[in-house]
């Protein structure tokens, strides 16, 4: 087992070009052992490409990638035994049952079992964990999208991977399945020390799960921070709404609390229905994506670059809303 500070996943100046289109133009990040990291970004930003390069399923155009000390593009079968993969789209083995498929794919990991890390997971336990016990002997083509996805997750972790890659794992989950999945990911990270990289469109999910977030836009990592740190970057954008008489007001200010104090000092009792809404992760994200989509990728990258906890007042660019 690695110590906590070990870097498990590392990319340096990772580039991917399809035809004459650059999808990744220099991606750099590191993930340490035991971290849960979310990769966010608008559609087409290259999230899947990045994760497929790290899985060894896609050959990069340039740059470096290292996962568990090996280059994924030339990784050994022993390396496969230590990684787990949940892809975006799967519709295979329609005539099989979840139990058969999980047991068979798990079997490949048995020669890689060690005293510290017994491989594979017990099939029944794993089916129970992902909530598929009741459906274990039904044909896979009778499962719903969300149930099938849970089977994908089970297959991804059946070999007790040290690193797990998940591409939009919760697409098609109902709220309860989503919550159970979050519990599972937290347990994997806490109990097995699994390092996890996942992509998602769901910011609440990212906020709940990830110890760190990477935002991919314009072919680069434009933000690498905790959820809190990320949200605070547009702290200048606290929204204050209030009513005075019949008129409704709304303003974006740097310090919501100070603004409200002043408001009361000037207008006193006339102020009604006061709302002070501090910026959330979503605000940061939307601002970023809008910058990107308006063709200001570089501006967006500049805006969100830099160390975490950067004071709000230093942000001179206002996201257009």
């Amino acid at each position: 087992m690695e110590t906590v500070d070990d870097v498990v996943v590392e990319t340096r100046d990772l580039r991917m070009r399809y035809g004459d289109k650059d999808v990744l133009s220099g991606v750099d990040f590191e993930i340490r052992a035991g971290e849960v990291v979310c990769l966010l970004g608008p559609n087409g930003a290259g999230k899947t490409t990045t994760i497929e390069i790290l899985e060894g399923f896609r050959i990069r155009s340039a740059g470096e990638a290292v996962v568990l000390g090996e280059d994924p593009a030339a990784a050994s079968e022993d390396w496969r035994a230590r990684t787990g993969v949940v892809l975006q789209s799967w519709r295979d083995h329609p005539r099989w049952t979840p139990r058969q498929l999980l047991a068979q794919l798990g079997e490949y990991y048995r020669p890689y079992s060690t005293p510290e890390r017994a491989r594979p997971h017990d099939t029944d336990d794993l089916l129970e964990t992902v909530g598929l016990s009741r459906l274990a002997d039904q044909k896979i083509n009778t499962l719903s999208g969300g149930q099938r996805r849970r089977l994908d997750v089970a297959i991804g972790i059946v070999g007790r991977p040290e690193v797990l890659f998940l591409d939009e794992p919760t697409a098609g989950f109902d709220p309860q399945a989503r919550r159970e999945f979050h519990d599972l990911i937290r347990r994997l990270s806490a109990v097995d020390g699994t390092t996890i990289l996942l992509t998602t469109h769901d910011l609440d999910e990212a906020e709940r799960l990830a110890s760190r977030m990477l935002v991919l836009a314009g072919g680069r990592i434009v933000a690498d921070d905790t959820a809190d740190g990320l949200a605070r970057r547009v702290a200048g954008e606290t929204e204050v709404r209030w009513r005075r008489g019949e008129e409704v007001f709304a303003e974006r200010v740097a310090d919501g609390t100070a603004f409200a104090r002043d408001l009361f000092a000037v207008h006193g009792d006339e102020i009604r229905d006061l709302e002070v809404r501090p910026s959330r992760l979503e605000d940061t994200y939307i601002a970023l994506v809008q910058q990107h989509e308006a063709g200001h990728a570089d501006a967006a990258a500049r805006l969100f670059a830099g160390a975490s906890g950067q004071p709000a007042t230093e942000l001179d660019q206002e996201p257009s809303r």
Binding site: E55, F57, E77, D78, R80, A81, G84, V85, L87, S89, W90, R91, D92, H93, L105, Y108, Y109, P111, Y112, I155, G156, G159
Partner: peptide, 20 residues
Amino acid sequence: MEKEDGTLLRHKAVPHGLKG
């Protein structure tokens, strides 16, 4: 078919899966 539906990729993701 199994190239398209992911069967092959499923096996590529496990150690020595393609041989199997």
